[in-house]
Design a protein around this nucleic acid. Sequence first.
DNA 1: CTACGGGTTCGAGCGCGCTCTAAGTCAAGC
DNA 2: GCTTGACTTAGAGCGCGCTCGAACCCGTAG
Lengths: 162, 162
Amino acid sequence: MKIGELARQSGLTAHTIRYYERIGLLPRAGRDRQRQRDYDASILTWIEFLGRLKATGMPIRDMLRYAELRAGGPATEPDRRRLLERHREAVRSQVATLQDCLLVLDGKIAGYAGNEIAGYAGNERTDDHDSSDIEPIHPREHDADRRRHRSGPAGPRPARAR
Amino acid sequence: MKIGELARQSGLTAHTIRYYERIGLLPRAGRDRQRQRDYDASILTWIEFLGRLKATGMPIRDMLRYAELRAGGPATEPDRRRLLERHREAVRSQVATLQDCLLVLDGKIAGYAGNEIAGYAGNERTDDHDSSDIEPIHPREHDADRRRHRSGPAGPRPARAR
DNA sequence: CTACGGGTTCGAGCGCGCTCTAAGTCAAGC
DNA sequence: GCTTGACTTAGAGCGCGCTCGAACCCGTAG
């Protein structure tokens, strides 16, 4: 299978596939006599899984770590497992955050309700008060925010860690 | 309340607060006689809500749209409502995708299970096959991928839209 | 008077994950 | 023989959302 076909089947672009290979997310593909990449269908399984990791917000550098472990053979399985377990926890808390936010959205939308159904606009206070009387929720906690920059053990992210 | 205090209370940095004001996400703050921003505590409610939108993956340009509508007064409530309803759908499908991925992760982790508990490594085929025999799942569908670049009505994102 | 700890503006820079261009090779079809 | 189209490489560029540096201003404490 050539790169174009793989692109079609995987939903990635050929550009992206080459990029993934360059950075090591995909193994270096074998070439045919024309020096073109020649893929085995099994790569699709791996790409599919990468897609899952990506969809769940795993940064590329972590996928890379996993890919490296995988390349390291069976001895690395415990590490791989731990990596995935940690990620699973992250995803679970992500889901929890989203569900939390969904409640807030529901409340907000309910505050706007009827503006169309009934004919009257101006449901008085729905503008600035933001019906977020739903729950206090400590400020500085809407942080289900993966992607910390500059890796170091710097501040957890808020404010003047300088 | 000055910007530093707001930063502390909101969890944003002062830099970010100014940035948000610059782009219009936050209303231009009133200044004291020293020309320094002076905030009312009510801004925290708005920042908190923005945090929710952000946590659920809404791009800034959409938050901006919402902020503009809000500034447009009660007449825009139906629009605001539609905007939030659309976003809520996006979030719901995001949650569904994540839960889907969680199942895959569970399966994968189960495939690695015991490598530590029992003493034997090398649970044979857990390496390249990737126990994603969990379910076929059409490739090209791991796309719970908000953030489309270059806005236009271009291709839905995959492959050579050129 | 001086230092310091805020604040201000403007604009450059960064990390991420692609995305695209340019210039070239090759094989098949007209 | 020539065009077409899919491929190759290296490397530049982009959109997003901040993040930071530089240079400056101000008010208060020592």
